[in-house]
Write a protein that binds this DNA or RNA. Structure first.
Lengths: 232, 232
DNA sequence: TACCTCAGTTTGTCATGACAAAGTATTGAC
DNA sequence: GTCAATACTTTGTCATGACAAACTGAGGTA
């Protein structure tokens, strides 16, 4: 574990425990570095890390203050399944459809591939706490990762991508809303015309290769997106 | 202008012009630093800046590659008004209500202030391209900034905050959806029961002071949120 | 041919030193 | 007493040097 990360972790613990209160200034960089026996760049990097997470704020000529005792995590590239597991909401997945088919224009445009390129097309129904929560559609280029229904029933898509050595690094999401169609209302156990949250996402790996396109609808009555922002 | 920023800007221009294509590797840090006559930390910092914006990806032992020719801006702490101005969509604001009143429990909890603390409560109708787009409710603690209706008609709320010396640094947003009430449908020129996007946001300044609470509804037929993420 | 080892390349981490810029507090003059 | 100039504190930027860790590819061996 890098030294700067150890320092950041120690600072974070002090703040979370309340030993350095909100609004209080932390020790200046030079003294802190000396006391911990590390160099100032290392100390700066540790502080920078916490600043980026929204815990600290720096002011030249003034010092570094605590602004929030909890880490505000940046929006993460995780899948719904991961979020639900983390939230202890007992997710279950029903795979409604899984087949290899040529990419439609919509999918091809989103993934920046040629129309007709074979992709794995997946339709899943995601349950949480025994109730349906979301209807999910995904397209994964066949040459990126072959998938089976068994995998998908018990794991999140992003988990499968990662175990296949594929790491999503960049994604574009569009969040909107619309009314449920009859078919959607039926599988989601909502009334016809109920409001749904929609989210489409395209994710790329470090090499700029498109990994996944997703077009999902969530029951607005049971789900919302939470986003924490921090401006540098 | 800092040296590392000048280097980053030069690199960015090269990539945006396409002189360094997507997938291509850029010069290694040591050589680049020497050629530009700067130190390696400065070069690293410039590259780091572009990595954080999603243009470049680094791999130890391999090099630094271009993954996207355009900067993927992080989600910014801007207001809808600013977004619309930037998108050339001719925003107009109608102030429906503006009064000082004691904070409700909901508002007080969001702003982390005592219930009953005086806040300015604002209801606005935002138009874009001549059509209503969003119904916006805001609460600003009175001791943060006094506001008048004239200000709000011609400027975004965040613009006013900034001109008052208040800089939002951290915000939490929750995005959801629901059906329009009759009153909402009427002012937004939607049918009753139409799907609306909802967004609530609380913004804090660098000192951890809550600046603003907002609870807005957008016509889902005319608006959606776009979010770009980059991990790691 | 297939696999392993090892050298080379490139980024990751860390230390030390120095000066600049911005904000705060003190001191002095009027 | 008030205001302005000055000194001090603290973060921001930059240079130099060094070693570590991860990946690549060539070469040797079974």
């Amino acid at each position: 574990m890098p030294l700067y990360f150890q320092v950041a972790t120690r600072l974070q613990e002090l703040i979370e425990k309340g030993e350095i209160g909100v609004g209080a200034r932390i020790e200046n960089e030079v003294d802190l570095a000396e006391r911990l026996g590390v160099s100032r760049p290392t100390t700066r990097r540790a502080i920078q890390y916490l600043v980026e997470r929204g815990m600290l704020v720096r002011k030249r000529g003034v010092g570094t203050q605590v602004v929030h005792p909890k880490v505000r995590r940046p929006v993460e590239l995780s899948s719904l399944y991961d979020d639900l597991v983390a939230g202890d909401r007992a997710p279950r997945t029903e795979v409604l459809r899984l087949e290899v088919m040529p990419a439609s224009d919509t999918v091809a445009t989103a993934l920046e591939i040629a129309p007709g390129t074979p992709v794995t097309w997946i339709e899943r129904l995601r349950y949480a706490g025994g109730e349906p929560l979301a209807l999910m559609h995904n397209a994964i280029p066949l040459d990126v990762l072959p998938l089976t229904g068994d995998d998908l029933a018990g794991h999140g898509l992003y988990e499968l991508l990662r175990s296949g050595g594929l790491t999503p690094r960049i994604a574009t999401q569009v969040i909107g809303a619309r009314s449920a169609t009859s078919a959607e209302a039926k599988v989601l156990q909502e009334k016809r015309g109920a409001s749904l949250l929609t989210m489409t996402r395209t994710a790329w790996d470090a090499g700029g290769r498109a990994l996944e396109y997703g077009s999902h609808v969530y029951r607005a009555s049971r789900y919302s997106f939470e986003i924490n922002l921090s401006a540098g």
